[in-house]
Simulated scan of single mutants.
Amino acid sequence: MSDAAEAPADSQVPVDQEARDLLERVVATPSPSGEEGAAAAELVEFFESHGREAWTDAVGNVRAPADDSLLLTSHVDTVPGDIPVRVEEHDDGSDVLWGRGSVDAKGPLCAMAVVAVRTGVSFAGVVGEEVDSRGAHHLVAERDAPDAVVNGEPSGWDGITLGYRGLTAGRYVHTSESGHTSREEANAIQSAIRWWARVEDRYETDEYEPVFEQVTTKPVAMDGGLTEDGLSVEATMDVQLRVPPALTVDDVQETVVSELAGGTVNWYDEVPPVMVSPRTEVARAFRVAIRDVGGDPRLLRKTGTSDMNVFAGAWDCPMATYGPGDSDLDHAPNEHLPLRDLDRAVAVLERVASDFTEDENDD
C-alpha cells in the first residue's frame, strides 16, 4: 500500500526522527545470534542518554526495568546475512531502510525502546531468539511476571499477532548390520526414510485446512553410511514439527514415536503453541490505538514460533505481539522497512503504553 493511500495515518503521525536514527544505528550494527553485544551496547547507551538505568545481564539481554504495568520486549539478534545498510528516498517522498534485521526484529525493537523511554514502561531486548530463545528463557527465570507484555515481531503497523504455533525438534538415530546391497532387509538409511514417510502421511491434511491449524513436518539434516569399522550402517535425521494450538507438544511427539520400526528419537527442543484472546486489555488497547492512528486493525495468527510462546508458558498475564514490518521479509535477502511504518508503529505503541500507565496511576 502506498503512502498516498494511507493519507489518514500520514496526516496524524509526524516523522519520528529519533526512532529513525536509533533504528539506523542498530541495523548498522550487526548482531547475528551469539554476537549481539555491540547492538546491545547501542541500546544501553540510548537508555542512559535519556536518564534511564539499563544494563546487559548474564546472557546478554538488555534490561531496562521501570513501570511493570507493561513490559515491551523484542529480540536483538538476527539471522546471518549481509545486506548493505542504506536509506532509499523514493519519488513519492517515502524513505525505506534496507539492512539485515530492519524487519526481524530491529524495527519492533527500536520502536519499543523509544516508547519505553517516553512512557516509563519496562523494556527488555533479548538475545538468541533466532536459535533457542535463551534470552527469553533467562528473562522469565530471573524476573517476576509484569502486568502485561507486548512482544516485538513484525506484524505490520496495523496488525496484532495473537497466536503462534509451537515447535518440537528431535534427532532420529538408527544402526543396522552392514551387508551386501542386494540383501532384501532394510538398512538404517532405508528405515529412516520410511519412518519419516510414515510421519508425513500421518499429518497429511486437506489442502483447504489453514496452515496455522496443521502439524507441518520438516527434515532439516540427514547423514548416513558405513561406520569406520565397516560393520554397521548408521543413519541420523534431524527433524522439526510445528504444533498448532489444538494439540500439545506431547501429542505430536507420541505420534512421531509411534511410527518407529527401529531406531529412537531424542527430543532436544520443544516450545508450546500459544493462542491468546482478542478480548484482553492488550488486544483492546492496540485496536483503539491503531484506529486512532488511522488504521484498520488486523488480528493475525503466525505459522512460526516466537518468544511470545516462552512468555505465555511462564507468565499468566495478557499479551500480544506487535511491530512494524512485513513478516514475509523475515530472513529474506531483500529485507527492508518503510520508515513511515516505523513512525506509525511508535505512535501506536506510545498510545498503548500510555493507556497502561494511566490505568496504573488511576489505581
Rank of each mutant, 00 (worst) to 15 (best):
G295K: 05
P32L: 02
V276L: 00
E360N: 13
V352S: 01
D3H: 12
L167Q: 13
A145T: 07
Y172A: 08
D104N: 12
R284M: 05
T357W: 08
T236F: 09
H174I: 09
V220E: 15
A66L: 07
D316E: 12
S232G: 13
F212Q: 06
V126T: 11
F47Y: 03
L260T: 03
L299M: 00
A4N: 14
A66G: 10
G313N: 05
N361F: 13
G224P: 08
D82S: 15
A113W: 01
A54E: 04
V310K: 02
D206P: 01
D132I: 14
E213Y: 14
V103Q: 07
G170N: 01
V276N: 06
I290P: 00
R52H: 03
D229H: 13
L162C: 02
Y203G: 09
R284S: 14
G230K: 05
V211K: 08
R340K: 11
A54S: 00
G81V: 10
D292T: 07
L109A: 09
A40R: 01
I160T: 04
G101T: 08
V149M: 06
S258F: 08
A7S: 10
V211G: 09
A192W: 04
T280W: 04
V44G: 03
N187A: 04
H180K: 05
V249K: 09
T280C: 08
V76G: 06
D10C: 15
F123I: 07
G81K: 07
S102N: 11
A186P: 12
V293W: 06
V173K: 10
P65N: 10
R118I: 01
G295L: 03
E207W: 15
A141I: 06
A9F: 09
G163Q: 05
V96Q: 03
E129H: 07
G262P: 02
